[in-house]
């Protein structure tokens, strides 16, 4: 309130031109961004064998078909399982590491920070091949467990980075106060730090789940007979354009969307409510 802010100076004409420019940029951007999604969803209801215009229908046949497809359904189950397990492990390990670096003076802290985010700069393809070679080198079989391990490798840097960025100095005061009131280190962590960090932990979990849910190359190299959903969809692609893929893709989109919107509402809805009770000074 008591600081200068950019406001409403400028002639009416300029403002109208500005508004028109803004509208054009936004409209073009959204057209480009949504074009493939709209085509994908629309033609999942297409009553025809090839999903190309002109649109005929609508029909729900393709949805009936994929829901009755056992291979697709079991692949979905595998993906959910791997996603939950790898998201949990990544977030747990990432949070512990971030806590260790943020709250303790560890020798070589700068190097460790760099080291833990390093996997982000390496292509999934290379990580997949590396793990594949390691499996063949040690004689271990390909499995869904190996896929899960690979997904923790790619998600751990992300979870670590999110937790580290949110472990700011402002919680230190509360941690110190709790210690002063007699809490042990474990109690401080569980009763103060984790509850204060939960939005970041939840964000990290959601993001890791989505990345695992969507990952193809590592899952392709490391899985054998039991596969994940992206690998199954990949094998469907060999049949060319097919409305069944549209239907499957639409369902996958819907699932991701629900988790994303839940996350938006939980985190930002909460923040907005806080904002209303305590407006900025």
């Amino acid at each position: 309130m008591s600081e200068l802010r950019p406001q409403d100076v400028g002639s009416l004409g300029r403002r109208i031109v500005g508004t028109a420019g803004t509208t054009v940029v936004i409209a073009l951007a959204y057209l480009f961004i949504f074009l493939p999604v709209v085509v994908l969803v629309l033609f999942s209801f297409h009553d025809g064998r090839v999903p190309v215009p002109p649109f005929q229908g609508p029909t729900l046949d393709w949805y009936k078909m994929i829901l009755g497809d056992d291979r697709l359904m079991s692949a979905t189950g595998h993906s959910v399982g791997i996603g939950l397990a790898s998201a949990f492990l990544s977030t747990l390990l990432g949070f512990l590491a971030a806590f260790g670096l943020a709250r303790h003076a560890v020798p070589g802290a700068g190097f460790l920070r760099w080291f833990l985010v390093l996997p982000l700069t390496v292509s999934y393809l290379i990580i997949g091949i590396g793990l594949l070679i390691a499996l063949s080198y040690t004689g271990l079989p390909k499995s869904l467990l190996a896929v899960m391990i690979g997904h923790v490798v790619i998600n751990l840097p992300l979870a670590f980075a999110i937790c580290f960025s949110q472990l700011g100095g402002h919680q230190v005061v509360y941690e110190r106060a709790a210690r002063d009131l007699g809490a042990s280190e474990g109690q401080v962590l569980m009763r103060i730090t984790v509850p204060m960090m939960w939005p970041a932990l939840f964000a990290s979990f959601c993001l890791c789940f989505n990345f695992s849910w969507d990952e193809f190359v590592i899952a392709f190299f490391l899985s054998n007979f039991d596969v994940t959903l992206p690998v199954e969809i990949w094998s469907m692609l060999r049949t060319g354009l097919n409305p069944m893929i549209n239907a499957a893709g639409t369902l996958v989109f819907l699932l991701s969307l629900i988790s994303f919107l839940a996350f938006e509402i939980l985190i930002f809805g909460k923040r907005a409510r806080h904002g209303r009770t305590a407006p900025e000074a």
Partner: peptide, 21 residues
């Protein structure tokens, strides 16, 4: 939120959708 919504379609499915387009 709208600008990053298609982010949440699967990467493979999004590539396929461009093929449709």
């Amino acid at each position: 939120v709208l600008a990053i919504l298609p982010f949440w379609t699967s990467y493979i499915v999004r590539s396929y959708a461009w093929l449709l387009v």
